[in-house]
Design a protein around this nucleic acid. Structure first.
Lengths: 318, 318
DNA sequence: ATGAAAGCGCTAACAT
DNA sequence: ATGTTAGCGCTTTCAT
């Protein structure tokens, strides 16, 4: 079938154990080392991770489980995680579950059947129930973006409420008063928290106006149009996620509403798109790089027996 | 360590071989079947794919290798592929290589070390050299989106040139004459072909105007602004990929240029964004679902000893 | 520094 | 229908 360590043994006249030793950094006579390397090259040997993992109970790969591959936030995060793990010589198996808890559960089992050393998940719901099979085996798990109710897994999230509060306070500080929020379903942890931040900031002003944008471009667009036409006195909009921010920006452009002394717009996350779509606006940006790095680091620490950690990172306003 | 087939054997009083037979669909006494299922449930058994693959030389997983996780086209395609493979009970390992040939090569080896049964790749370059280690082991490979020079791998692509030609001919048919193309680097197969389609369609008109948009939102935006301001007589724009189409749409909106009898815009692929950003425009859309399905099907056929196939699918104009 | 031998969890003859 | 046995490719004592 495939080239194995035995083929290398035959080729070099050494034994499988020596070849293995070579791969695992034990000392090998320079002369033999050279022979081994030549044989690897010649035969195109690639180590079989399955066999290795079977023996060592370490696969040097971690599973990353996200709700949607189509979601920019998720893929950005995965990219950062990958970057961080690759430095530690860990591989990645990426799964998505189409925001479907049933599939999420399946995916966890898939990852376990590949004997990953740990899982980083952006949970599709606030529940950790799809992780039960992993937790039963005390497989290390790090959840990102939202909290689950589980105490056995680490969490790496941003301070959504504070980010929302800061964003709105910044608008207030600049003299805008009548600010509306366009938010996602309150069943979502992040949407709920960011909206709570808006409410905290607005509490003193006596003004409050919120519209559901369903976390979609279309939803944000429609909500913005609705708000702007029904409330011509509106002085600002705060949108609580990427997609809705895009929708709002499109609506503003379409209605000829400029970002100036009389109107402010603060969106979320849309670093690439928004600056060209809507110059002058402000944005809450999540520390993607740090999120990925910290999640990776936390997971690896757990794999090495480290404790569960709950880490909250701050967003910045740009 | 983990729960193994032996634990099931002990729990049920049967032998490992019987449990294995159960998993592989052989006939097992109903009474024992029930006992096995109960034990699986009780112990939370998850089959170890590594051990299984080690024995069977089939991992029931395929590798999917894409240039960028951040690229919508890629992730959409992966989603479709996943959908198709899941029906055949195949799992997926997704890798991205940041459009870096060196990483692509590494990723291929990573996938091989996981003994995937085959690879579906959206190549980062026109070369198949990063696949050499896979081809050396005659691992089935399907390339998507662009051709490579290799005859050992299957290709599933769209008729880019024809799509470009059709798109532009459609504009010509509607009476627009002075049509410009905003295209990507000609080193890219798809960009080159789509531009060639534009040229073929425009050949009879005596008009030709092209601008490089670098396949980015920003690039498309700038190219459109440049074209529109330098050529006020322009009657249409054809943008040859997703990102540039978005950029063009933003530019049009910003310049107050409407899609009407005097101006046409045809973009590429942006099914979700463009309709809200720029109603009335036309779009070339690639048959994502079919692409994914055909690629999956072709790969599975190859895994079962089927031949190399080169498949070209048509795009539609919406 | 290298070899011999056992075993990781599973499947595949073969025997019963 | 089930048990016995051997072995997939690798690592890991334990000898040498």
């Amino acid at each position: 079938m495939s080239i194995t360590i035995k083929d290398l043994a035959r080729e070099t006249g050494l034994t499988a154990a020596t070849i293995s030793a070579y791969f695992n950094g034990a000392s090998v006579r320079p002369y033999n080392k050279e022979k081994i390397e030549k044989a690897i090259e010649k035969l195109g040997y690639i180590r079989n991770d399955y066999a290795r993992a079977l023996r060592t109970h370490r696969s040097m790969t971690v599973g990353v489980l996200i709700p949607e591959l189509a979601n920019t936030f998720c893929t950005q995060l995965v990219t950062e995680i990958e970057e961080a793990l690759r430095l530690k010589r860990y591989g990645l198996i990426i799964c998505d579950c189409r925001s479907n808890p049933e599939r999420e559960r399946e995916a966890v089992r898939f990852l376990q059947s590949k004997t990953v050393d740990g899982i980083i998940i952006i949970p599709a719901t606030d529940s950790a129930s799809s992780l039960s099979s992993a937790l039963a085996k005390s497989l290390p798990v790090v959840a990102m973006d939202r909290y689950t109710e589980s105490r056995e897994i680490s969490h790496v999230v941003v301070s959504n409420r504070k980010a929302g509060r800061n964003a709105v306070e910044d608008m207030l500080d600049r003299g805008f008063r009548k600010i509306a929020a366009i938010h996602g379903e309150e069943s979502l942890f992040t949407a709920r928290e960011r909206l709570a931040g808006y409410r905290e900031a607005m509490a003193g002003t006596g003004f409050s106006l919120t519209a559901l944008g369903g976390n979609s471009v279309q939803g944000g667009y429609e909500a913005a149009k609705m708000l702007l036409s029904s409330r011509p006195d509106l002085q600002g909009i705060f949108a609580t996620n990427y997609e809705m921010s895009i929708g709002v920006a499109i609506a503003l452009k379409e209605m000829g509403k400029a970002i100036d002394d009389s109107f402010a717009f603060t969106g979320f996350d849309s670093v690439k798109m928004l600056p060209v779509l809507c110059p002058g606006m402000r944005m809450v940006v999540q520390p993607m790089h740090e999120l990925g790095a910290v999640a990776a680091e936390t997971l690896l620490a757990m794999i090495d027996g480290g404790p569960v950690r709950n880490i909250v990172l701050d967003c910045s306003l740009v």
